[in-house]
Amino acid sequence: MKVSDFVEKYNLKVFAGHQGLEKEIKGGYVSDLLSDVMGNAAEDEVWITLQTHQNVMAIASLKDLAAVVLVKGLEPDNDTLAHSEEEGIPLLGTGFTTFQMAGKLYIDLKL
């Protein structure tokens, strides 16, 4: 599943990082602890979180993640947007909770 398919299917908001929408999603990771993501997320995964500050994009870039999804209608900080755009990693938004979003993605990826 491509990031763009995921966006379309769940009507996700694309805040920034459109350049990365054609990337293939290989999995997902759910955490709001940054060191946990740093230590355990893998390349091309979608990270679902409620953290909205720019270090989220620093981690997404260092870990080569496919995209970041902010849950519950949360909006990113301005420097987070800029960082997403710079790195070309899609920063997405949804009204779903983390549990709902992760559940849907899990089923879609048939893991």
């Binding site: 940054l34 946990d36 740093m38 230590g39 953290q51 500050h53 270090n55």
Partner: peptide, 12 residues
Amino acid sequence: EMGFGAGMGLSN
């Protein structure tokens, strides 16, 4: 609150 400081840094 930023999601840092979980005590995982040095072990990572």
